[in-house]
Each structure stands twice: as structure tokens, then as C-alpha cells.
Design a protein around this nucleic acid. Structure first.
Lengths: 336, 336
DNA sequence: TTGAAAGCGCTAACAT
DNA sequence: ATGTTAGCGCTTTCAA
């Protein structure tokens, strides 16, 4: 509260505030002698620059903001940790806020971050209100969209193609002989990743002549419990599917749990697949066949992209990351 | 970047900047008529107050900072999500930074947050350099320590007693008949939670006359792989322990995996326990006996404490949260 | 109830 | 290489 200011340092070191500022920001423009003296005083006083003053005067904040749906989800946490590490190397601070999957809340958080002078924003996915996009564009805010990729020049992406990945794993399931397939999807409202994954599954089914549009889809929010309940719902219908494709690993693990409780064998009685390849996927029994997403690399890519765009606004080269299907034990063959 | 300012709003609404400021901060001190007019212009322009200017002028920021070891750890992510939700209700923004378990880095991040005008700080655990504590005290920064609790008036805590919890689960293991017990601990350097858990296990062993000081302890960093390796190391020694107490669930699950790979049955051949009760614990097979920690409640408690202290610095009533042992399947009985 | 004006701590022209 | 100084956007006395 009684923080020392630039002026305190300047007085004590017997120089002007400008010199102190230079020692801190462009040390090369000060002779070593003066610099050493100043930096010694800085250390003595435990001086820390006041962010507000700096932001006000320089109109840059060395801050990048991220608004994620929730911190309480391993995939975002892992990705953001990578973002933070990459930004730290460039002396940029990451500010994180969460929207609780609520578009109104997301706009609020974006405003808060922008008001704090964020030089750029990392946003998750593409689904948000027009009002939010209007705000972003009117204010000419630099942002990159992560966790999704579209070949769309309108935004700058660092993500992967959710449709394509869902198609790929679905094709795999079909190749293993499954013809009766159901899906447990994440909540698709305001969530383009979840939506795209459903589309991908339907596409692949249609391509194989399996009437993707009639596939049974149960939506469930992100928790093991909801995954369990969703499986129950799916099993009520007959004939029961031989394979269940899940929109994320957490739902898949919930489904596996429930199936085991019901005495079903996996994959003999039913195959189950996931999406994300979180740590859990390799630990659950049977080990989960799923889509591997390079969360860490994605975080790093998003951070680098934003850093590049900060220096040159138009320098927007979207990055598409590749995913792949990891075959483990929860997907089995149907013998004719 | 071309954000509208208070002055833009004032001009357009035909009032002074002081009035606009009042409409935003103390709406009751402005007649409804003026207020409505001003707020309409605010909405029209999509005006967002500039944080820097505000912080500079008012010396308050409505911001609370948190420095956690890493985001990439479910227990912190879960707790912080709760912190954020609680703070949001009070219109306070949470800024998160991570230290990568490095005390120097932690001080840096604390400085960055304080420089940004954080009204208070949430810090994890008690182990940090004297230099950091000096900084905190010299600047009279309000902070609460989470994820640990001591009956120590020097700090303000919102956490639990790691020693006590470790003693309790160890006593449970001993009660089940185990006499030869080893431990896979988290890295204890600069980590008081990990250290306390080792102390607790030794205490309980000593109390039962089992020479806690001679217990075999292998330290491992927070990953499944390291847990697997640690188990290998433990099994080299003979006689092999009948129970292995782990400092956290991730290490425990790693150990379980490895044991299964080696063809050992759990708990028949070896019992394994964890600590934290993350989601994984209930999913792994066999289900993990572990210490349940109320991460969400702890986050909420820390946030509330900080909010209270912000209004009245001396209002520091540490909160001790209770943990309990969750008995599942990975701990078994030794029959005499 | 409202306005005028003085800073808050810092940076960046410009001057020396 | 260093100093002087004019703001950056906002809040907050003080006056009207």
C-alpha cells in the first residue's frame, strides 16, 4: 500500500525518473555506471512498477488475457499452463478468467480483460454472440481462437478440426464392424467443439450408408456422473448399440463405469470411445480408445500466434494442429 | 485500441467526467434523469473503464491474485474455479499466475500481481523464501495461505492439516494389520504439503512402535510415470512392504498401474493408498482408498476470507477444513 | 446535484 | 547519456 514509486527511486539514486524508467525498460540506453546505481536502489527499496501507471503511459500492458469455459477441466488447464509458460518467456503475463459456458458472462470477462489493457485475447471455440464479435471488432482487439480450427479467413485459429477428428474415429468404429452406433455428446448449446463432434460422427455414418441423421444422441454435461446417466438412457432403447462414441473422455469413462456396474463386458458386449486423450483415458479399465488432442502444443501455438500478432496485427497465420486416434482396449471388433 | 474514454462519454452526454464517474461508481449520488442519460451513452459507445486509470486514481483494483504451483493439476484448478466463482459474486476479478514450483518465480509473480494493484493474494502453502515474506510484510499485502493450515497466528490460513490427515490414513493402514509400510512422496523441497504428509506418516508409524524414521520413502514428481518408477524402486528392497502410502493420488495411480503390469494383485499382494481424492481415485481399478480434501469448499473459504480482510485488514480468522479418509478397494487387510 | 481541476505513477517526446 | 515535462484515463476533493 505504501509502495515506493519511480520518483522515490529516482530521488534516492540521484537521477531523474526518466533514467530510472529507462534502466527498467531499455537498459542499454543507460551507461552501466548509472544503471548499476539505479538498479541497486530498485533492489533496496523492493520497487515494483505500478502496472496502472505503466499501462496508462505506454498504452501497452504486456498482458494477454484468456477466457476459458471453466478451469475445472483438465484439457483447458493443461493447455493454459503451456500458454502461460510460453508467454512468460516473452515477459508477458497471462490473465485467466472463466465464463462458466455462459456467453453473456464471456462478454463480461472479455470486457474486464480489455479494460485491464490486455494486448490480446485467447478465446475458446468459435460460438459466441454477435454482440461479442461486434465488441471485439469495434475495439480492434487482437484475439486467437483455440481448440477449434476452420479454414475461414475471418478469424485467427490455433486449433484442430473437430469434425474431421470425429469422422476419423467413427470410421474406425465402423471399420471394426459396428453398424448400430449411438453417441453420448457434450452439451452442444454454445459449444462448437461439442457440436462439431456430433456432426463428424453423423458424417461418417452417412458416408458408410448408416443413416447418421437417425443416430441416437444423448447430451450430457461434463462429469462422470452424467456419463453414467447417459449410458442408462441409451440402453433403454432396443436394439442396443454395439458401440457408443462419446464426445469427450470424461463422459466415456462415466459410461464405462456404468457398463461395468451393469455387468457388461467392454468391448465384448459394447465398445466405447472417447475424445481428448486426457490422463484418465490411459488409466481406466479397459483403457480408452480415443482421439488424441495435443493440448500442450496447442497452447504453445496459440501463445506464439498472439505474440506475433501483437507486433504485427495482420500477421495472422492460423495454425491447424493434427489429431489422431489412439487405439486402446475399449473398442473391439464385431465378428460377422 | 481506440477505446472510448470517460471524456468521450461525458462530452456526448453533455455532462462532466466527474458525473460519468459517479454514475458508474456511486450511482445513488446522481439524479435518475442524468444517470439514465449517461448510462445510455455508456451502452451506445460500449464504454469499458480503463483499469489502469482507475487503479491509478483510486488506488484500489477490485482484483485478487492467486499464485499456484501449476495450473496443470486438478486440485488447484478445481479450487481456483471455486475461488473465481465466489469472487465474481463480489465483482472482484481473479488473476491467476503460476510459479512452476519455483520460489524465485513465485516472488516474481507476486510482484507482478501486486504491481497490477491486486488488493489481496491467495498463496499455496507456507514454504517460501524469507525474501518473499519480507516483501509481503513490508508492503503490507493482504494474503491468505491455502492448502495448508497451522495454528499459527503469523499467517491467515484457509486450509487443512496435512500432518493430521496423513497420520489418520496411516493409522488406518496399520489398523488393517500392515507392519511393513513404505511411502511414495511428492517432491518435498519447497513444498510444505508434501513434507507434512511424510511427517504425518512417520508420526503414526512411531506412535505404533513401527520405527517411522526408518521407513523407506521415495520421492517422485507429480506424474503417473514417476509413480510407476517409484514403485519399481520400492520393490527392489526386501522384504517388500505390504502397504504403500502415497503422497497424492496421481502417484498412487501410477503405482497401481505398475503393480498390475507386474502381475501383482491389489490389495491382496500389496495395498496402496492416495491423497487428495481427485476424480481419478474413484475410477481406477481397484478404486483408491485415499484422503478426501474438500478442494471446492477450500477455494470458497479462501476467497471469502480474503474479501473480509480486504474490508478490514485485521479481520483474519483462519479457517481449518476437515479431511477424512475414504475407504475404497486398494487397501486390504493383512490376516495374521 | 453537478462541475472544475488536481493528481495517481509512469513513459516518451523533446531538450540539453 | 540524461533531464524536463506533458499527458495517459480516472477518481476525488472542493466549490458552486
Amino acid at each position: 500500500m505504501s509502495s515506493p514509486t519511480l520518483e522515490d527511486v529516482a530521488r534516492r539514486a540521484g537521477v531523474s525518473t526518466a533514467t530510472v524508467s529507462r534502466c527498467l525498460n531499455t537498459p542499454d540506453s543507460v551507461v552501466p555506471n548509472t544503471r548499476d546505481k539505479v538498479l541497486r536502489v530498485v533492489a533496496e527499496l523492493g520497487y515494483t512498477p505500478h502496472f496502472g501507471g505503466r499501462a496508462l503511459a505506454s498504452n501497452r500492458s504486456n498482458t494477454i488475457g484468456a477466457v476459458i469455459p471453466t478451469m475445472d477441466n483438465a484439457i483447458f488447464a493443461t493447455g493454459l499452463q503451456a500458454v502461460q509458460e510460453t508467454l512468460a518467456e516473452a515477459n508477458v503475463t497471462l490473465l485467466v478468467a472463466s465464463s462458466c459456458y455462459d456467453p453473456e458472462r464471456e462478454l463480461e470477462q472479455i470486457r474486464a480483460l480489455v479494460g485491464r489493457g490486455a494486448d490480446g485475447l485467447i478465446l475458446i471455440g468459435i460460438a459466441r454472440t454477435q454482440k461479442t464479435y461486434d465488441f471485439l471488432h469495434r475495439r480492434q482487439i487482437t484475439y486467437v481462437i483455440a481448440w477449434n480450427y476452420r479454414s475461414d479467413e475471418k478469424h485467427c485459429f490455433a486449433g484442430f478440426d473437430n469434425v474431421e477428428a470425429a469422422e476419423r474415429i467413427t470410421k474406425q468404429v465402423i471399420d471394426y464392424g459396428h453398424r448400430n452406433i449411438a453417441m453420448i455428446a457434450g452439451v452442444t448449446e454454445y459449444n462448437d467443439r461439442a457440436t462439431d463432434r456430433v456432426i463428424g460422427v453423423r458424417n461418417a455414418l452417412n458416408l458408410a450408408g448408416l443413416a447418421g441423421d437417425q443416430m441416437q444422441v444423448v447430451e450430457a454435461s461434463y462429469s462422470l456422473k452424467k456419463g453414467e446417466e447417459a449410458l442408462d438412457k441409451i440402453l433403454q432403447r432396443s436394439p442396443q448399440p454395439t458401440a457408443i462414441i462419446c464426445g469427450n473422455d470424461v463422459l466415456a469413462v462415466g459410461a464405462i463405469n456404468k457398463a461395468k456396474q451393469l455387468g457388461m463386458r467392454i468391448p465384448e458386449d459394447v465398445s466405447i470411445t472417447g475424445f481428448d486423450d486426457i490422463e484418465l483415458a490411459a488409466v481406466v479399465e479397459p483403457r480408452l480408445t480415443t482421439v488424441h488432442v495435443p493440448h500442450k502444443r496447442m497452447g504453445k501455438a496459440a501463445a506464439r500466434l498472439l505474440l506475433a500478432m501483437r507486433d504485427d496485427r495482420k500477421n495472422c497465420h492460423s495454425i491447424k494442429l493434427e489429431t489422431h486416434t489412439v487405439l486402446r482396449d475399449s473398442l473391439g471388433t464385431i465378428l460377422k
